[in-house]
C-alpha cells in the first residue's frame, strides 16, 4: 500500500456498484419502466400528431389567439412575430415537435408536482424528506442520468419527455409548497371558523390565494423544460434541439443558428403566455378572463346581436 498516493486506489467502488445495480434493474424490472412510459406516450403522441398535423396557418392563428386572451393585444403581436419568424426560417415542424414535448412535460409536472407541493406544505416531515430529492434532481448533471434513462426507457421522444420531467419537476413542487405556506394563516382560520372542511379550505381559499406563486412555478418548469431540449436531443429526441445538435456535429453553423433562434423565439412566446396566466384577477382590475381578449370581444358581439 502506497501511503503517499493513497487515493490512487479506488477504495469504495461506487461506479461498479451503480453499474451492477443498473444491470440488475434493467434485466429484472425493465417492464415496470416500460409501463411508466405508457401515459407519457399517449399524451405526447396525441399532442405531437395534433400540433404537427394541423395546417401551419391554423396553428399560428390558434397560438396568436391564446396569446391575445392571456396577455392582451401586445402579447398577440409579439407572439405572431415570433412564430412567423420560426415559420419563415423553416423550423416550423421542428418547433411544433419541441412544443408538444414541452407541453407534455408541463402537464405531467403539474399533475404530479402540484399535489406533491400541497402535501409538502401541510406536512413538515414530508417536506424534509422531499427536499433533498428535489435538490438532487435540479443539480445532478442531466448527462449522468441520460444513460440509465436510455437503458430503462430506450431512446426517442418519450424518453426525452421523461428526462425533461425529472429536470423540470422541482420548481413547481417548490413554488406550490411556498405558495400554500405563504397564505395568511387567518385567511385559512376564517374559512375553518365558518365551517369549511380542510378540503374546502384548500380549494376555496388556499389554492386560489397561492395560485400566482404556483403559476410562477409552472412558468419556471416550462422554461427548464425548454432548456433541456438540446441535451435531450442526444438521446435522439427530435425537434429544434436536434437541429442544433446536428448543426454542431456537421459544423453546419447555419442549421445550428436556425435551431437556436427557434428555441429563443419559442421560449419568448411560451414564457410570456404562461406568465400572463399567473397574473391574479386583482392585478387585472377584477375582470373575469372571459370579459377580455377575443372571447370578451365575441361575447360583446353576441350580446349586441
Amino acid at each position: 500500500m502506497d501511503l503517499w498516493d493513497i487515493f490512487d486506489t479506488e477504495w469504495v467502488p461506487v461506479g461498479d456498484w451503480v453499474d451492477g445495480a443498473l444491470q440488475w434493474i434493467v434485466t429484472n424490472f425493465r417492464f415496470i419502466f416500460q409501463a411508466i412510459k405508457v401515459p407519457f406516450d399517449i399524451v405526447l403522441s396525441a399532442l405531437e400528431n395534433g400540433l404537427t398535423g394541423a395546417p401551419d396557418l391554423l396553428m399560428l392563428a390558434i397560438i396568436v389567439l391564446i396569446a391575445w386572451q392571456a396577455g392582451g393585444r401586445k402579447l398577440a403581436v409579439v407572439s405572431c412575430a415570433s412564430m412567423l419568424a420560426i415559420g419563415l426560417m423553416g423550423a416550423w415542424e421542428e418547433s411544433m415537435v419541441t412544443l408538444s414535448i414541452v407541453l407534455t412535460c408541463v402537464i405531467f409536472c403539474s399533475l404530479i408536482g402540484i399535489p406533491l407541493g400541497i402535501m409538502a406544505a401541510r406536512n413538515d416531515r414530508f417536506w424534509m424528506v422531499l427536499r433533498p430529492f428535489l435538490d438532487l434532481m435540479q443539480t445532478i448533471p442531466s448527462f449522468v442520468y441520460l444513460v440509465p434513462i436510455v437503458m430503462l426507457f430506450s431512446i426517442g421522444n418519450v424518453s426525452g419527455v421523461i428526462v425533461t420531467f425529472i429536470y423540470a419537476l422541482p420548481p413547481v413542487v417548490r413554488l406550490t409548497n411556498l405558495g400554500i405556506r405563504q397564505v395568511r394563516p387567518d385567511m385559512v382560520e376564517a374559512a375553518r371558523a365558518f365551517g369549511a372542511s380542510r378540503k374546502q379550505a384548500l380549494y376555496k381559499v388556499e389554492l386560489p390565494l397561492a395560485m400566482p406563486t404556483i403559476m410562477a412555478g409552472v412558468n419556471q418548469t416550462i422554461m427548464m423544460a425548454l432548456s433541456m431540449v438540446v441535451v435531450a436531443s442526444m438521446i435522439s429526441v427530435t425537434g429544434l434541439g436536434q437541429m442544433v445538435l446536428r448543426g454542431i456535429g456537421r459544423l453546419d453553423m447555419g442549421l445550428a443558428t436556425v435551431g437556436g433562434l427557434g428555441i429563443v423565439f419559442l421560449a419568448i412566446v411560451i414564457d410570456r403566455v404562461s406568465q400572463s396566466f399567473g397574473i391574479s384577477a386583482r392585478d387585472r382590475g377584477h375582470k373575469k378572463w372571459y370579459e377580455t381578449g377575443p372571447v370578451g370581444l365575441v361575447r360583446s358581439f353576441v350580446k349586441k346581436g
Binding site: 385567511m187 382560520e189 386560489p208
Partner: peptide, 12 residues
C-alpha cells in the same frame, strides 16, 4: 359567527 382582528376577508 366570528370576526377577526385583521378582517381576514378573502381577496379573491
Amino acid at each position: 359567527g366570528m370576526v377577526f382582528q385583521h378582517m381576514a376577508l378573502w381577496p379573491h
